[in-house]
Amino acid sequence: MPAPSITFAALPSGARTAIEAEIGSILRVEDVSAGLNSSLSALAHTAGGVVFLKGLRSDHRWVWTQQREADINPYVTPLAPRLLFHVIAGGWDLLGFEAIDGHHADYSPGSPDLPKVTGALRELAALPCPGIELRLAEKRLAGYVADPADAEAFAGNALLHTDWNNHNVLITHDRAHLVDWGWATRGAAWLDPAHWIIWLIATGHAPSDAEESVALLPAWTLAPPRAVDAFAHASANLWEEIAGSASDDWTMNILNAARLWQQHRSHRP
């Protein structure tokens, strides 16, 4: 379930004071739609520029993702916006990032954003996986495969983002930026292209065309076909579980895309 949203003005005064101690006096704030993994999502305008703010209550079950984002940021810039501060105050865990002046990626067929997204996938695949605490792909997906042994195919030493929701990909004039790294994972390098395939299908691509979009990525060329089959199966099961507790149109669209890809893989020669 999404984290409950809150406006900047509704934050406790101690939290707002702590933010201004980091970035200076705030001239105005634009509250923006919070993502699934954060309660606070806002753009703070200061004399020095614009800062993107995100936060969760300190007792929220996903608050660990805030620390994960802070820990990983030095290793993923400039692919990701630079972290400016991380503070805990007034019962809130708060992050401030350089604001990216761009738009959410358009994944639809023929979109001019698609080459920039594949460029981001290439850039991410070239980054070394840092020696910080990260979730492991084979453990994250172990409960969704048909055979527990299938999950071992997801193991690896690549740094993965894993959440290719188009709202996590910001497009500027020359490139794509990845935000929301709270679910960064260590695993097989081909898994991020595989995650993206489901989002491509959800935005109108046929499964074969979605696979063609990643076909030239070096990480994808190394993907064992049977392992990809297992991932498609696990992804459909994962989204079935998510839809069980949040059967809104958005979730059902992703679930249907995952099912469609699973069916496509099951008919593979």
Rank of each mutant, 00 (worst) to 15 (best):
P2Q: 07
A3R: 11
P4D: 14
S5H: 15
S13A: 14
T17E: 15
A18K: 10
A18Q: 13
I19V: 14
E20A: 12
A21D: 14
A21E: 13
E22C: 08
L27A: 02
R28L: 03
V32I: 14
V32N: 03
A34T: 04
G35H: 00
L36A: 02
L40I: 05
S41N: 08
S41E: 03
A42Q: 01
H45P: 00
H45W: 00
T46A: 00
V50P: 07
K54G: 09
K54T: 05
K54A: 02
G55L: 01
D59I: 03
D59A: 02
H60T: 09
W64S: 12
R68N: 06
E69W: 05
D71M: 07
D71E: 15
P74Q: 04
Y75E: 08
V76W: 01
R82E: 07
F85V: 06
G91N: 10
W92H: 08
F97Y: 15
F97P: 10
H103P: 06
H104V: 06
A105P: 08
D106W: 03
G110A: 06
G110W: 05
L114E: 13
L121T: 01
A126Y: 05
C129E: 15
P130N: 15
I132R: 09
E133F: 09
E133L: 02
L134T: 11
L136Y: 13
R140S: 12
G143R: 09
A146F: 11
D147Y: 11
P148Y: 12
P148I: 12
A153W: 12
N157E: 15
L159W: 02
T162Y: 11
T162D: 12
N166K: 14
H167N: 13
I171Q: 07
H173I: 00
D174K: 01
R175W: 04
R175N: 14
L178H: 10
D180V: 05
W181Q: 06
W183S: 13
L191C: 05
P193N: 05
W196P: 04
I197F: 02
H205S: 03
H205T: 02
A206M: 15
P207E: 01
E211K: 05
V214R: 04
A215N: 13
A219N: 08
A219C: 07
A223F: 02
P224K: 04
A230E: 10
F231E: 02
F231P: 00
H233Y: 15
L238N: 02
E241Y: 01
A243Y: 06
G244W: 06
D248M: 13
T251P: 03
T251S: 09
T251E: 06
A257G: 01
A257F: 10
Q263D: 10
Q263G: 14
R265P: 04
H267S: 14
H267A: 12
R268Y: 14
R268P: 03
P269I: 12
